[in-house]
């Protein structure tokens, strides 16, 4: 039973991280209909920035709390800046191009960013400093739920609530929803679509950066390639939930995280990634609109 609970919590942890990344895919897709292939790399850059800043600060002897806060802020700031810049360079000029052009551009961007980090930093795995301490009060159940699992779950929960509030009630959130429904109409009622798109990229990548920071400190190592696999999996989760749907992305992520955790725990860990990819292929074939997405008739 303990083992089951352990797998359950590790699945939830996994799922939360996927959710943080999947939201970026889903929000961008909802607004400009683009699979932002480079989103996984944004997450990787968030993790890398956090790694660099945290290591520098720890060398200078900063206290742990300060390191966590500064590294977290740095990850969010730089990830968002990258996403903002990428949108301006690689996607904006292609807004009226054939549908596949921005996707190819996004794939190019993803390859570019991977190799940019590889060349400017290193291809080795780097040890990520443990930013989340072992809490004493977790001691009795530490063998089934680690402190960092707890922190990840709580952080994700808080972030989700903040996101929901932003989307539901803030001005920019309302503009996002309006643009997602009908970009043309949104322009007509005076919404600045360009800034809505930028805001979407910024919010999505901030979430991914937080995910990057959490997972890196949870797993304890990073390299330039972590964005690719995590990106594909988060995308799988977003599609599973119904791409474009925010609750769908969270639901899909939790389902994917739990299934992966149980599958690796009870079956075998060799085929972990095969499993995720097969799930992706199967959903797209049998239910491309996902669990909470809606099917639409293309207007002719």
């Amino acid at each position: 039973m303990d083992y089951f609970i352990e797998l359950f919590f590790s699945g939830l942890t996994r799922g939360s991280i996927y959710a943080l990344i999947a939201l970026g895919y889903t929000m961008v897709y909802g607004i400009i209909g683009l699979i932002n292939f480079a989103h996984g790399e944004i997450y990787m850059i968030g993790a890398f920035t956090a790694f660099i800043v945290a290591t520098v600060l720890s060398i200078y002897g900063f206290p742990l709390l300060a390191i966590v806060v500064i590294a977290g802020v740095a990850a969010v700031v730089w990830s968002s800046s990258y996403a903002y810049t990428i949108e301006k360079i690689a996607y904006k000029p292609l807004r009226h191009a054939p549908r596949l052009s921005p996707l190819i551009s996004a794939i190019g961007m993803s390859i570019f960013l991977q190799n940019y980090v590889l060349l400017a930093q290193t291809s080795d795995f780097l040890p990520f400093p443990a930013l989340i301490p072992e809490f004493a009060f977790m001691e009795p159940i530490a063998h089934i739920v680690g402190s960092s699992d707890l922190v990840i779950l709580i952080t994700t929960f808080i972030v989700m609530i903040i996101l929901t509030i932003i989307i539901k009630f803030s001005k920019i959130g309302k503009a996002m929803r309006a643009t997602a429904q009908d970009r043309m109409m949104a322009t007509l009622v005076g919404i600045n679509v360009n800034s809505v798109i930028s805001a979407t990229f910024i919010v999505g990548s901030a979430l991914a950066a937080i995910g990057g920071l959490l997972i890196a400190s949870h797993i304890g190592q990073i390299n330039f390639y972590i964005g690719f696999i995590a990106g594909i999996k988060a995308f799988t989760a977003a599609v599973l939930g119904g791409i474009g749907s925010i609750p769908g992305a969270v639901l899909g992520s939790l389902i994917l995280g739990l299934t992966e955790s149980f599958a690796t725990g009870y079956v075998s860990s060799d085929y972990e990634d095969v499993f995720a990819f097969s799930l992706l292929v199967l959903i797209l074939i049998f239910k491309p609109s996902g669990l909470l997405g809606k099917t639409t008739n293309q207007k002719v």
Partner: peptide
């Protein structure tokens, strides 16, 4: 050759923007 993959990525982006 070290910059090979970097260049491939850049090529995909630039071609889409400047010369699809």
């Amino acid at each position: 050759s070290e910059y090979r993959m970097l260049a491939f990525g850049a090529i995909l982006v630039c071609m889409m923007i400047f010369r699809p």
